[in-house]
Design a protein around this nucleic acid. Structure first.
Lengths: 345, 345
DNA sequence: CTGTTAGCGCCTTCAA
DNA sequence: TTGAAGGCGCTAACAG
């Protein structure tokens, strides 16, 4: 940075007429412990303020080999607002703990990944958050082994690295509960299925859905397999409607699927939630934009980011699966008109 | 990081049987300049590789007071995928230049902002990108004055800090051109208006729209003032349709407005693009999710981020307004069925 | 061409 | 209570 020479600890000490030792102790809140006179302490504090002294991090880092910095490596920080929410949560938690975040995006490239790991280790980050956009099993870059790492939204295939994930199974159960709590029964179709084997979310959500359905005595009329995107979902639901008696409820495996489903339902003259109730997963902005607003089981991205920082700084938590809260919209409002109990912010 | 002591330059020098000076020169690719024998050079390189030596950045920073790190301060990295796209662009550009990004989110809080500035200056970042989610005029924190700063998506009220922004005026012109290039004429309504005075985008887009409209001999049937969100837009367009003869074209001031407009149009039995063509601003993911896909004047977030890094590292560019590219969807396809020329990725 | 050496700013042991 | 001094790892004068 183009700034001139900054004031150093020595400057402060000189101005206060004490040694750098004393100044150092005082400015690091150890004057008590070192039994430095209150008067001296105050004098140094004043001098520091007058000179608007700020410690030189590089020097401190070199000395203490710790930087109050946490690295985040993610395959995509750009895609959707998902990864960014996570970074946001992590950044806030880090700041509260007096840390800063350095971020790197790999775009899935292994070489970039390894490079970023090295760059961050060079900068002596206190720990590294390794995150993926879609929940998956991964092989982490070799440079990460033996470091203070936490995996986010993924697990490593072979090793025993601490990993934080949304509790997709419970999330699946929550989705079904949301449907039945709103008083709806009858035929439920799941839209989305398990297309990608490397993505864990689909399977776990489906398991949770089935388990909870069994508990409440509901049953799954069927699963519409389709790519997790708007148009495929639209087509799948459209075809379903032309073949069969319409479902009473739809569980969409993400919000974009729900968007497509909405279109198909509307085209078929079916209203949400009066004719068909819809619940979905993600809790993205889209859920709030749709009309009626979508009830969606939210992926706790910000919470994951914050928990990752905590894990790095204070050790792993007991629960490594984070709850997926229900974001209530109007797509599950009971036909009687009971208003939803919560609104999105 | 919990790693053991890392190998130092001295270790490498010792193993290669040379002085640290030579090792330093060689590893910094200055052996040529220092006329060090090829043989020695090779020996040192080998030793470094064998010990998998990596320079200690903190030490280097302290010595050279430069960190190969750039700070990004933004009011919201979480909201939408906007800020994150920008960060993504910046991160990539930074990495190419051998730099890393440290990011901080202020949530609009002045105190946090000032704190982050200090934290980053403490870490001796090479420069700071100060970005806002919505284009606006701001007062930057005092700590930023005199530093290597570039404003992104905003301008400072009083000072002369370099600022990079999307060319909203040209963008407005582009939107109109998109409409007329697709062969559409007739009544054009703008939806959105200028609600927020601190947000620059609305006014500039409208100016561009009016100017271009005049050039091509079109005219604005009217402006629907509404909040830039789905429901208000839906209501505004619905009311318009119930009062008036339907418009031939709609220029929506952002993608969410277009989403609401789509709903109102569909409800009224009007098809896009057959009955009404729609063009919009943002070029967000939503534009691709809507059916038919939306033609939208894209905010070049990634490009802004990349340009900001370049500005910080190499000085300000000539053009401080970045072009807003047209993202072609089907909402402006000519009625004759001409396919759009480009697809979103 | 290569080695010796003096800091960069800070923390901390040891003595006073 | 305070001061002097060493050293974190690296770079760059300045000798040889």
């Amino acid at each position: 940075m183009r700034g001139r020479r900054r004031t150093t600890l020595a400057d402060v000490a000189a101005r206060a007429g004490v040694s750098v030792t004393s100044a150092s102790y005082i400015l690091n809140s150890r004057s008590e412990e070192m039994r430095i006179s209150a008067e001296t302490t105050e004098r140094v504090r004043l001098a520091a303020r007058e000179l608007s002294y700020r410690p030189n991090r590089s020097a401190r880092n070199l000395r203490s080999s710790s930087t109050a910095t946490i690295g985040v490596i993610s395959d995509h920080v750009a895609s959707g607002s998902f990864a960014s929410r996570m970074i946001s949560g992590a950044a806030t938690a880090a700041r509260v703990a007096g840390h800063l975040l350095v971020v790197g995006e790999t775009e899935g490239d292994r070489e970039t990944e390894a490079l970023l790991v090295e760059e961050m280790l060079d900068r002596q980050v206190e720990g590294i958050i390794y995150a993926t956009l879609v929940a998956s099993a991964v092989t982490v870059p070799a440079g990460l082994r033996g470091q203070n790492v936490v995996l986010l939204n993924c697990v490593d295939l072979d090793g025993q690295l601490p990993a934080l994930m949304p509790d997709e199974y419970e999330g699946g159960r929550t989705a079904v509960s949301a449907l039945f709590d709103a008083g709806h029964r009858g035929r439920v179709w799941a839209v989305g299925g398990e297309t990608d084997l490397s993505a864990l979310a689909g399977g776990l959500r489906m398991q949770g859905i089935l388990a909870r359905l069994q508990e409440v005595g509901g049953l799954l009329a069927g699963v519409l397999d389709c790519e997790w995107a708007v148009v495929p979902a639209y087509e799948a639901v459209r075809d379903l409607l032309s073949d069969q008696e319409p479902p009473e409820s739809l569980i969409c495996l993400n919000d974009r699927i729900a968007m497509g489903a909405y279109d198909a339902l509307r085209e078929h003259g079916l209203r949400v939630p009066e004719d068909v109730t819809v619940v979905s997963f993600d809790g993205s902005d889209l859920a709030g934009w749709l009309r009626p607003s979508l009830t969606s089981v939210r992926i706790p991205f910000a919470e994951l980011g914050a928990a990752a920082v905590t894990t790095l700084l204070d050790g792993p938590p007991d629960r490594r699966l984070l709850p997926m809260p229900l974001l209530r919209g109007h797509s599950t409002a009971s036909v009687a008109g009971r208003p939803p109990t919560g609104r999105r912010p």
